[in-house]
């Protein structure tokens, strides 16, 4: 097996960005760190700096004020990078569709690799989405 690919699959570091979400998704993401779910089992760690990350995990519908900041953060993540739209606000705007200050989903701003629906998605859904993302990566 390609050793570089193997290493990528085994060590997805996550950078969490809140682009105007309601907090529900953010705490569910943090809940995935806690002993009950413990995503560090898969080598996933939450990093504080986008430069250290592989997966940009974005929650919340993108508000107008934050859009440019979000793009800049996206540029700071070194290649290869993956974007995970976490929660329904990030997937499509969710309940905030048809509001004047939102972009209705992060795929309007940056390309997305994995959509995780749920409002908020359960911690198991993060693990599930990560597994799906990594499986796709492994097979590519």
């Amino acid at each position: 097996m390609d050793i570089v690919k193997w290493s990528r699959v085994k060590s997805p570091w996550v950078f969490h960005f809140n682009a105007g979400g309601c907090n529900g998704c953010d705490i569910e993401l943090l809940a995935a760190l806690n002993p009950k779910f413990d995503i560090e089992r898969f080598g996933m760690i939450l990093r504080g700096s986008p430069r250290h990350a592989d997966v940009l995990l974005c929650t919340g519908t993108v508000t107008r004020q934050i859009r440019d900041r979000f793009k800049r953060i996206y540029d700071q993540v070194p290649e290869p990078k993956f974007v995970m739209a976490f929660g329904n606000c990030a997937c499509s705007g969710g309940v905030f569709q048809k509001c004047y200050n939102v972009h209705e989903g992060i795929d309007k701003v940056v390309p997305v690799n994995m959509y995780v629906p749920g409002c908020p998605p359960r911690p198991q859904a993060i693990i599930d989405a990560a597994v799906k993302l990594l499986t796709a990566l492994q097979q590519s």
């Binding site: 508000t63 905030f96 509001c99 200050n101």
Partner: peptide
Amino acid sequence: YVHRGGEKA
């Protein structure tokens, strides 16, 4: 930064 326009909605 999280102003989404909820009150209008």
